[in-house]
Simulated scan of single mutants.
Amino acid sequence: MRVELDEPKCVASGQCVIAAPDVFDQRDDDGVAIVLEERPGDELLDEVREAVAICPAAAIRLVDQ
Rank of each mutant, 00 (worst) to 15 (best):
M1P: 07
L5G: 05
L5F: 10
D6N: 14
D6Q: 13
D6P: 10
E7I: 13
P8H: 10
P8Y: 12
K9A: 15
K9S: 14
C10P: 07
C10K: 03
C10S: 09
V11E: 15
V11L: 15
S13H: 15
G14D: 10
G14R: 10
Q15L: 15
C16F: 08
C16H: 03
C16I: 04
I18W: 13
I18T: 13
I18G: 12
I18H: 13
A19H: 11
A20D: 07
P21C: 07
P21E: 06
V23W: 08
V23I: 05
F24G: 00
F24C: 00
D25V: 05
D25C: 04
Q26T: 11
Q26Y: 04
Q26L: 08
Q26W: 04
Q26D: 04
Q26N: 08
R27V: 12
R27E: 14
D28Q: 11
D29Q: 07
D29C: 02
D30Q: 06
D30S: 07
G31Y: 08
G31Q: 13
V32E: 10
V32R: 12
V32M: 09
V32P: 02
A33F: 07
I34L: 04
I34E: 04
V35M: 01
V35H: 01
V35W: 02
E37Y: 05
E37G: 02
E37K: 10
E37S: 09
E37H: 08
E38W: 01
E38A: 09
R39N: 05
P40C: 07
G41I: 11
G41L: 09
D42F: 07
E43C: 05
E43V: 08
L44K: 08
L44H: 12
D46M: 08
D46S: 13
E47S: 12
E47H: 13
V48E: 00
V48C: 02
V48I: 06
R49E: 00
R49H: 03
R49V: 02
R49T: 02
E50R: 06
E50D: 04
A51T: 01
A51E: 02
A53H: 04
A53Y: 03
A53G: 03
I54H: 01
P56G: 13
A57D: 14
A57N: 14
A58S: 15
A58G: 15
A58N: 15
